[in-house]
Computed example of a mutant assay.
Amino acid sequence: MKRPAKSTRRSFWFDPRFAIGLGLVVAAVGGVYLIVSASDQSTAVFAARSALAVGDRVQAGDLVATQVRLDGTGDLYVTPDWLPDDGLVVTRTIAAGELVPVSAVGRTSGTETTSVVVELTSALAANIGPGTVVDLWAARKTDQNAYGPPTVLVGQASVVLLVEPTGLTVGTGIRSLELLVPKDNVAEVLESIANRDALAVVPVNEPLEQ
């Protein structure tokens, strides 16, 4: 009668030095990764895919996102997060491959509207401030001390800035406003300013109570 054959499988052997070495390798790789990640301070900014001329309207497809190290100057260039949905308008020539500076582009709304500073001859309502939509009224000056009936000069203009009085106008109650008006109305507004017409603004909508 034959006896069962003995198993030839060897028992598992574990060397602590192997585990220590493996741990050191993993730690070294992790350390290198952290160092490289910490040193990589690059930011995604847009570069021109091709040469852009003044007046060109550009969308994301006209630009190429490029990873560059800006060293604290990221606010000077257009980034993917900053690009408006309706695109941008080029205000100075940008060469192909050049990073797109914020100073070289503008919003597309700038092709239809522009800012004009007007000097008011009436008190300003307390609820008027930057962002308020107003109607600009004008009473045409007919002679030195007389004015015609007031009419709406520009409807639904946006207030950009309240200009605080300075110099001789301090204490006179005169206040200037920077308004965003359609370019089609600019000539009429400038003519009214030159004529020294009486100008006033009236809010279009009543603000919600807090």
Rank of each mutant, 00 (worst) to 15 (best):
G23D: 07
L24D: 00
L24Y: 00
V25I: 14
V25R: 06
V25L: 14
V26Y: 02
V26W: 06
V26C: 10
A27C: 09
A27G: 07
A27S: 10
A28V: 05
A28W: 04
A28H: 05
A28Q: 03
A28C: 05
V29R: 06
V29D: 04
V29P: 04
V29G: 07
V29A: 12
V29S: 07
V29H: 03
G30Y: 07
G30A: 14
G30F: 08
G31L: 09
G31S: 13
G31W: 06
G31M: 08
V32T: 09
V32G: 08
V32R: 11
Y33I: 11
Y33W: 15
Y33L: 14
Y33M: 13
L34R: 12
L34I: 12
L34N: 09
I35R: 09
I35L: 14
V36Y: 13
V36R: 14
V36A: 13
V36F: 11
S37E: 15
S37R: 15
S37P: 01
A38D: 15
A38F: 15
A38R: 13
S39R: 15
S39G: 09
S39Y: 11
D40I: 02
D40R: 06
D40C: 07
D40S: 08
Q41T: 15
Q41G: 10
Q41H: 13
Q41R: 14
Q41W: 05
Q41Y: 09
S42N: 08
A44I: 10
A44Y: 10
V45M: 06
V45S: 03
F46G: 03
F46K: 03
F46Y: 08
A47N: 00
A47G: 04
A47V: 01
A47I: 01
A48W: 01
A48K: 00
A48M: 07
A48Y: 02
R49A: 11
R49H: 07
R49F: 03
A51S: 13
A51F: 03
A51R: 11
L52M: 08
L52R: 01
L52W: 00
V54D: 02
V54M: 01
V54C: 05
V54H: 04
G55Q: 00
G55P: 00
G55T: 05
D56E: 05
D56W: 03
D56M: 01
D56I: 01
D56H: 01
R57C: 02
R57G: 07
R57Q: 08
R57K: 08
R57P: 07
V58D: 00
V58M: 04
V58K: 02
V58H: 02
V58Q: 04
Q59E: 11
Q59F: 11
Q59D: 12
